[in-house]
Design a protein around this nucleic acid. Structure first.
Length: 863
RNA sequence: GGGGGCGUGGCGGAAUGGUAGACGCAGGGGACUCAAAAUCCCCCGGCCGCAAGGCUAUGCCGGUUCGAGUCCGGCCGCCCCUACCA
């Protein structure tokens, strides 16, 4: 619906419904946003990328915000003379497609491509400056086949490993999860309690790059600090020592236990050693002792999941094994199995020093193990144990008297000298398990042969394509129970063999798509000329929820591609911007049912508060909290409906105007309505002025100087705001400008045309359709679109005013303002300031001790 | 527990150490209209004052400075991340 029916004068009404598709078609016809794989170098390149969407079928407001932000950057950079690559694609593999297949009998591929078609149409209505010729979906064989080639190259380069390992098993999704996908012991998707299971899995050796991934964070100066911090914590570097404890009696083949510690200086305070339930020594104890086995089984049942809940409760089991202390001749300590020791971190074993570690203290207190203080505060003060700060070593033999840092070094030196340990750096980061027991993913190109073992699929046999005829009626992995797909001959010996039926974690798909966009149709995964020219992504934009997973994987993958010659750089994203969420009020009916915003209407009460009612029967509605839009709370707004009602430019404008883009924004009806009014106002401003405007050309000097100054100040202000992602400020500057043009009216004279043309151009990154419409009104003979026009330049001469308004303070308090010529000298300014009536009153005859003048700003008298 | 961030009108927010509250939303008043919508104009942190103007005000307390929303120290509150990481 357009509001044409209610217009007073149809010619001053902007018909967005007609204009928006028309301009989209025009951009498309002219190929405005297409760029070559290898730019000609005539302009500097700029690669703008927003995190590509999962094709759920409908875009949501989060997408609209994300792609609007990216589009403003892309359009602005184009206007600033860059050759901008701004592509779009689909993160199209993943479980929802399989769920759809199970629930509705639609093939995952069909479901996905249908969704893509819908979402593409919706995105196109937003008028984004995308190069659609680069589009692909990660489920295209063309894409995932190249991913398989990358995998084989990574394998050759030693970046892939197959290992038996404890994995996180999601019993609901029936798949393995990466550590990063387990949140509070639950699957990130299903929410099911995750179990520990031992399986053979494919891993990417991300840990090989741990030091580099950590160190290079320092070079990412256009990344948010907090994202870098989160990554640094995730990588988790800690310095310490590995200490080998000799078992008093060997257990089977095992004669020692290795422990990681960051506090080797507290070794003399040891009173026990503890291993994880999954530790081999625990298994040995279990083999010998059914009670131990029971304890281990109990730990596993609690698993990672209940750990948080049971956190307070430290539990252990004494294995009866004993270990010798590395420094104390003839002294041994018991080996316990403890539920708070993690197999995944360090060596899965710790030495317990209750005096200086809270967990060890709790454990020792509970089980009556000894507590020896071995660190005193440097001040010498008595402190309660556990004392976990640094201090000075005591009761520690050769370490006595040493400050903690030196004691650590001393302990490590001795350990190394006696061959009982070494100083090491330990990393929290673990290798990236990528095997998923799912159908709708990229097949891992590997064949299992009885005789030859694990054999890579030869490059010339790629791609390994997914079979179409799959049965989703049975639980588990459809690839595994497909009648024929997995049965192949071994590429090495020719005997019957079996395909790998696991597929890649979908985070693999999104770890290199930004590189593929540079040459999306190439026969190889990347084309060096293309990636060398376009990468890195100059501005990447997406949600903070990907601060660790996707961004870390992409950083790893880029390094892998560097090692294998597919790219020449290590860091894929030079600039990162993380946007906030889109939120909305939530509403509930009297019965507590969540309501969609469109079911609710509002009335104002006398005191200005709002009351809500159900539209149908006017029954009262409770207005709830403002929170992230979610289907379950029904506080969503459909972008399609908004664009249909107000147009894409209005939606974009409101999103940009509400608040700074890194914060959560609140979607409000009145806000959108305000944005819509402003689009109409701009149109009216131009349409009504049109008959009085002089023809295009430079405005004569001297005429309408005030308006000209406003124009050039606005150019400078909007430019500055856009440069620093201050879109809400850019919007405010344009509002001010519109006010200034209105105020000038006909008195603006020839400067009016300059102002209105600048208005259209400055608004164009944010409201591209309206900008073209205004431009076409202002320049009917002009063939070139705003989209192709360079950004306006502010004239420095017009940024300077001929008079300045200075604040005059007495003792730092504002007492008045004065108007002075811009070139007035200081003495004149002081004299005029002092003469100001109100300033005189404030000085009250007291002598002026000091006069301060900040040019263009303020005068301050100290009396 | 550890780490990070943020506190400014009714709301979103603006403000290189220099006139706090730009701009918008909401609200109030008025014009136009038979009426409404749309549009246009005015007001809009609090207190005092007829006014001129004054006082007060950026979570709280202190400090640096001619001058602090902004810098420093301490507290209070909220939000986010992370968490038996040895």
């Amino acid at each position: 619906m357009s509001d044409a029916t209610t217009a007073t004068r149809p010619e001053t009404r902007y018909d967005f419904a007609a204009a928006e598709p028309r301009w989209q078609e025009e951009w498309n016809r002219r190929g405005c946003f297409a760029v070559p794989d290898v730019p000609d170098g005539s302009k500097p390149k700029y690669y703008v990328l927003e995190m590509f969407p999962y094709p759920s079928g409908k875009i949501h407001m989060g997408h609209v915000r994300n792609y609007t932000l990216g589009d403003v950057v892309a359009r602005y950079k184009r206007a600033r003379g860059h050759q901008v690559m701004h592509p779009m694609g689909w993160d199209a593999f993943g479980l929802p497609a399989e769920n759809a297949a199970r629930e509705r009998g639609i093939h995952p591929g069909q479901w996905t491509y249908d969704n893509i078609a819908n979402m593409r149409a919706e995105l196109k209505r937003m008028g984004l400056s995308l190069d659609w010729s680069r589009e692909f979906a990660t489920c295209d064989v063309e894409y995932y086949g190249k991913q398989q080639a990358l995998f084989l190259d990574f394998w050759k380069a030693g970046l892939v490993e197959r290992k038996e390992s404890w994995v996180n098993w999601d019993p609901v999704d029936g798949t393995v999860l990466a550590n990063e996908q387990v949140i509070d012991g639950r699957g990130w998707r299903s929410g099911a309690l995750v179990e520990k299971k031992q399986l053979s899995q494919w891993f990417f050796s991300i840990t090989k790059f741990a030091p580099e991934l950590l160190e290079a964070l320092g070079s990412l100066d256009r990344w948010p600090e907090r994202v870098k911090l989160m990554q640094a914590n995730w990588i988790g570097r800690s310095e310490g020592a590995r200490v080998r404890f000799r078992l008093a009696e060997p257990v089977g083949e095992t004669s020692e236990v290795e422990v990681f510690t960051t506090r080797p200086d507290t070794l003399f305070g040891m009173s026990f050693l503890a291993v994880a339930a999954e530790h081999p020594l625990a298994a040995a104890a279990a083999a010998a002792n059914p009670t131990a086995a029971e304890f281990i089984a109990e730990c596993r049942r609690m698993g990672t999941s209940e750990a948080a809940i049971e956190q307070a409760e430290k539990r252990g089991f004494d294995t009866g094994f004993r270990v010798a202390h590395p420094f104390l001749e003839g002294v041994t300590f018991p080996v316990w199995i403890a539920n708070f020791v993690l197999m995944e971190y360090g060596t899965g074993a710790i030495f317990g020093c209750p005096g200086h570690d809270e967990r060890d203290f709790d454990f020792a207190t509970k089980y009556g193990l000894g507590i020896t203080p071995v660190v005193r505060p440097a001040s010498g003060a008595e402190v309660a144990l556990p004392f976990t700060d640094e201090g000075v070593a005591v009761n520690s033999g050769f370490l006595d008297g040493l400050p903690t840092a030196e004691a650590k070094r001393g302990a490590i030196d001795r350990l190394e000298a006696i061959g009982a340990g070494t100083g090491v750096v330990n990393w929290r980061l673990r290798d990236w398990g990528v095997s998923r027991q799912r159908y709708w993913g990229c097949p891992i190109p590997v064949i299992h042969c009885e005789a030859c073992g694990v054999v890579p699929v030869p490059a010339e046999q790629l791609p390994v394509t997914l079979p179409d005829d799959v049965d989703f009626s049975r639980p588990g992995n459809p690839l595994d129970h497909h009648p024929s797909w997995k049965h192949v001959d071994c590429p090495a010996c020719g005997k019957p063999a079996r395909r790998e039926t696991d597929t890649f974690d979908t985070f693999v798909d999104s770890s290199w798509y930004f590189a593929r966009f540079c040459s999306p149709r190439a026969a190889e995964p990347t084309t060096r000329a293309a990636v060398d020219a376009w990468l890195p992504v100059d501005q990447y934009i997406g949600g903070i929820e990907h601060a660790i997973l996707h961004l870390l994987y992409s950083r790893f993958f880029t390094r892998g591609m560097r090692e294998t010659g597919h790219v020449a750089l290590a860091e894929p994203f030079a600039g990162l911007f993380t946007q906030g969420m889109v939120t909305h009020e939530s509403y509930r009916s009297a019965e507590g049912r969540w309501l969609y915003p469109e079911e609710v209407e509002f009335t104002a009460t006398n005191d200005g508060a709002r009351l809500a009612h159900l539209k149908t029967d006017r029954s009262p509605v409770t207005i709830g909290r403002v929170e992230a839009m979610s289907k379950s709370k029904r506080n969503t707004v459909d972008p399609g409906a908004i664009i249909g009602r107000y147009g894409a430019d209005t939606a974009r404008w409101f999103i940009l105007s509400d608040n700074p883009p890194e914060r959560d924004m609140e979607w409000t009806e009145s806000g959108v309505a305000g944005a819509y009014r402003f689009t109409q106002r701009l149109y009216r401003l131009v349409a009504t002025a049109l008959p009085e405007l002089p023809p295009p050309g430079a405005p004569q000097d001297g005429q309408g100087r005030k308006l000209r100054q406003a124009t050039h100040r606005t150019i400078a202000g909007v430019t500055e705001a856009l440069e620093e992602f201050g879109f809400n400020v850019a919007v405010a500057r344009i509002h001010e400008f519109a006010n200034a043009i209105t105020e000038a009216g006909e008195a603006g004279g020839p400067a009016r045309r300059e102002a209105l043309e600048a208005l259209a151009r400055l608004a164009s990154p944010m409201m591209p359709h309206l900008a073209e419409e205004l431009w076409s009104l202002l320049r009917p003979g002009e063939d070139e679109l705003v989209a192709n026009f360079p950004w306006p330049e502010a004239d420095p001469a017009l940024l300077k005013a001929e008079t300045l308004t200075l604040a005059v303070q007495v003792l730092g308090k504002l007492r008045g303002t004065i108007e002075v010529p811009a070139d007035a000298d200081e003495a004149t300014i002081f004299a005029q300031a002092e003469a100001e009536e109100n300033v005189q009153r404030s000085i009250a005859g007291r002598p002026i001790r000091k006069r301060i003048h900040v040019p263009g700003r303020v005068v301050n008298f100290v009396v």
